[in-house]
Design a protein around this nucleic acid. Structure first.
Lengths: 229, 229
DNA sequence: ATGTACCAATCATCCTACAATTTTACGGAG
DNA sequence: CTCCGTAAAATTGTAGGATGATTGGTACAT
C-alpha cells in the first residue's frame, strides 16, 4: 500500500506522543515528568526539538515548567486554556449567554438521565446553600451555589458539555464573586434552586429548562445593572 | 500593593505579542509573517526562543509553518484547534448534544435580534435548499443546509457562540456528509427549515427553540441508526 | 531551631552549524 | 521570446553545546 511520506514535523510527533501519555494517565496530573535530558534520550531527538514540543503543550495548558524544579502535568485536556484565553476577550454577558445555553441543555438531559446519587448530591448542595444563608456565610453560599450548577451539568453525562461548562463557570464566578462581596444582600434571600431540583427529580424536561432560564435572567439582570456602575 | 514578580518567560512574552498582532489584524490571515531572522532582530531574542514561541502558536492553530517557504497566519483565535482536538476524542452523539444546545440558544436570540438582512440571508438559504432538492444536487443541498444553520447562529450576534458553533459544525457535517452520500434519500424530501424561519421572523422564541429541537432529534435519530451498522 | 553558604538538578536562553524544502534567478535550447 | 532545467538564495527543521537562572536540598556554624 502506498502511503504519503511522513511530513509531520518531529516536534509535532513528540507533542502528540506526550499528549497521548497524559491522556492515557501514564503521566498523571500534578506529577513531574522526566527531565529534558532523559526525554531527549528516550525520544531520540535534539534538545531543541524536545523543548519546542514541551513548550507547545505548556502554552496549551497541559504542562507547566518550573525552572530549577522540573516540568509538571497540569491538565489532561487543552480545551481549558484555550477557552480561558478566548473568554478574556469576551464580555461577561456573551459568556453568560453561552453558559445558559449549556446549562439549559444539561438540565434537560439531567432530567432524563439523573440517578439517585445525582439527586442526593443536588439535595446536599441545596441544604448547604440554606445553611450558608442562615449563617450569612457568603463564601460557603457561593461555593454551594457553584456546586449545585456543576452537579446538574455533571448529571447530564455528556463529558464535552461538562468540560465546556466547568471552564466557563470558573471565569463567570470569579467575576460574580468579586461583586457579590460588595453587594451581598441579593443572593442570600432567594432560593430558586428548589424548583429546578424538583423538575429534575420529576424528569420534567420542560420545567427544568424554564427554571434555568429564569435563574439566569436574574443573574444577567444583576450583572447588567452592576456593569453600568 | 504587593504584586508577584514578573516571571513570565521570554517565550510566553513573544507568543503573547504575536497573538496580539494577529488579533489586531496587523498580521492578517493567510498572510506570510516575517522570516525568523527578521523577527529575531525585532523582538531581540535568540532563534530558539522565537521558535519556541512560534511553535506554540502553530500547535494552537494560529500559525502554520512551511519549511523553505515561510510561516503563515491561519486563524485569529486558538479555540478552533483545541476544540477540534477535543472533538476527536468525543462521540458524534455527545458533540451533537452540545451543538443543539448552542443552536437552540442561538435561535432564541436570533428571534429577538434578527435584522432584515438576517431574514434575507435565511430566505436565500431556504431557496437554495429547495433548488438543490429539485435538482437532486446533494452537494448544494448540504452546503445550503449548513449555511442556513450558520446564519441563524450568526444572527444571534454572540461571537463566542458563533465561534464554538462553527467549529462544532465542521466536524459534525464532515461526518454527516459522508453518510448522506451513501443514503441520499432521506434529506431531499423534507423541508423542516421553513417553520423555523417563520418563528424567527415572527420573533417567536419558544417556537424557534422547539423547531431546532425537532430538527436535531431527526438528525440524531438518523445518526443513531447509521451508527448501528 | 535558625540562618548561611554551598551544591546539585533542572529549566531558560543563546549560539553555531548543517539539513531539508521551497522559491527565485538565470542561462541555454527551441 | 518562451520554456525548461539547474543553480542559488531564502527559509524553516534539527542537532549539539555552552552558559545563566532558579529551585531544592545539605551541611555547618551560630
Amino acid at each position: 500500500m502506498i502511503q504519503k511520506a511522513n511530513r509531520t514535523s518531529l516536534v509535532e510527533q513528540i507533542a502528540e506522543q506526550i499528549e497521548r501519555l497524559i491522556d492515557q494517565k501514564q503521566w498523571k496530573v500534578n506529577e513531574k515528568i522526566p527531565p529534558e535530558m532523559e526525554l531527549i534520550k528516550e525520544f531520540d531527538v535534539s534538545r531543541n526539538t524536545l523543548r519546542e514540543a514541551i513548550r507547545s503543550l505548556v502554552h496549551a495548558g497541559l504542562l507547566e515548567t518550573k525552572q530549577g524544579s522540573g516540568t509538571f502535568v497540569r491538565s489532561t485536556n487543552a480545551l481549558g486554556a484555550a477557552l480561558k484565553r478566548r473568554l478574556n476577550k469576551t464580555t461577561m454577558l456573551e459568556t453568560l449567554e453561552v453558559r445558559v445555553a449549556l446549562e439549559k441543555q444539561a438540565a434537560q438531559m439531567a432530567a432524563e438521565r439523573r440517578t439517585g446519587a445525582d439527586l442526593a448530591k443536588l439535595d446536599a448542595c441545596i441544604r448547604s446553600c440554606k445553611n450558608a444563608s442562615a449563617n450569612r456565610d457568603l463564601e460557603q453560599f457561593i461555593m454551594s451555589d457553584i456546586q449545585f450548577h456543576k452537579t446538574i451539568v455533571q448529571a447530564s453525562g455528556n463529558q464535552l458539555l461538562i468540560d465546556l461548562y466547568e471552564h466557563m463557570t470558573d471565569t463567570v464566578y470569579s467575576f460574580v464573586h468579586d461583586f457579590i462581596v460588595l453587594e451581598p444582600s441579593f443572593l442570600l434571600e432567594q432560593e430558586p434552586h428548589l424548583d429546578l431540583f424538583k423538575a429534575i427529580q420529576n424528569k420534567d424536561k420542560k420545567s427544568a429548562a424554564t427554571y434555568v432560564d429564569n435563574d439566569m435572567e436574574v443573574l444577567k439582570g444583576h450583572i447588567s445593572k452592576m456593569l453600568e456602575d
